[in-house]
């Protein structure tokens, strides 16, 4: 008992250090976003919301925020739809080359973002589709669909395979069964996937920067500001982006967790 207590203590410290390591830069950025001084130095100046006011007054940032919102929402819907379809085809069918098929689908996240971004730019400009808002949506959908597929596949694996047959047996056609059994069963995973893919898309920088042209998203605007000068506006935008992403990820986790708990009872 004593041993496990000291072990728990050490593990506790370890966890705190990890969290500190991960979150310290973000927390500093948040603190400086409320600091009246232009340069991030200690001691801090006075509490101030002037950087936020400046951000809110900047039409370029508003436009970028609107772009980010459109891109992440569209990406979430498209990627989740694609992910659902691939996860279901994996669950339902057995076919030759299923292994390579699945490997291919899961490939995009393993490609370095820069390579992915360059390839996307090259291809999209070749077919005359680069530099638009939908270019980012296409690229982000490719990038995030594997996450959607992984989350939904996990859920489908928890499904009693008889459930689908039971619905047919009770007079449901394939489409009715899809609508009334498969989709409702996957609903927590579908929501989880929507939030997760939206979060990934919302703060993705590299691919957006390459394919966006003049339609910058928030992370791209941040870089543009930082390139020009040191401006605490960045801290304010960063805080906003971080809070948005965290909210999405936490929501995704909540759906994930609630379904795990339900899964225990089922």
């Amino acid at each position: 008992m004593k041993q496990s207590r000291s072990l728990n203590f050490i593990l506790g410290i370890y966890v705190v250090l990890i969290f500190a390591f991960v979150f310290a830069p973000i927390i500093f950025s948040m603190i400086f976003s409320f600091n009246s001084q232009r340069f991030p130095t200690i001691p801090l100046g006075e509490f101030s919301t002037e950087w936020y006011a400046k951000v809110l007054a900047d039409p370029d940032i508003w436009k970028a925020a609107r772009n980010s919102l459109i891109v992440s929402c569209s990406t979430a819907v498209i990627a989740t739809f694609l992910g659902f379809c691939t996860a279901y085809s994996d669950f339902r069918y057995n076919f030759r080359f299923k292994g390579p098929y699945l490997a291919l689908i899961l490939l995009p996240p393993t490609i370095p973002l820069i390579i992915m971004a360059l390839a996307m730019l090259a291809w999209l400009s070749k077919i005359g589709m680069s530099g638009q808002l939908y270019s980012i949506i296409i690229a982000h959908s490719v990038l995030t669909a594997p996450f959607a597929m992984a989350v939904i596949r996990l859920r489908l694996n928890q499904m009693d395979p008889d459930l689908e047959s039971a619905a047919w047996n009770l007079g449901g056609s394939e489409w009715q069964t899809m609508r009334h059994v498969i989709v409702p069963f996957c609903k927590p995973a579908i929501f989880s996937s929507l939030f997760l893919t939206a979060a990934v898309s919302f703060d993705e920088f590299a691919v957006s920067w390459f394919v966006s042209g003049l339609n910058s998203t928030l992370p791209v605007v941040v870089l543009e500001i930082v390139q020009g000068n040191i401006d605490p506006q960045v801290n304010a935008i960063g805080t906003f982006v971080f809070l948005t992403s965290m909210t999405l990820v936490v929501l995704a986790q909540l759906f994930f967790a609630s379904r795990q708990i339900k899964g225990l009872h089922a």
Partner: peptide, 8 residues
Amino acid sequence: QSLALFPF
């Protein structure tokens, strides 16, 4: 055998 009731 598994009852296959719809859990949702």
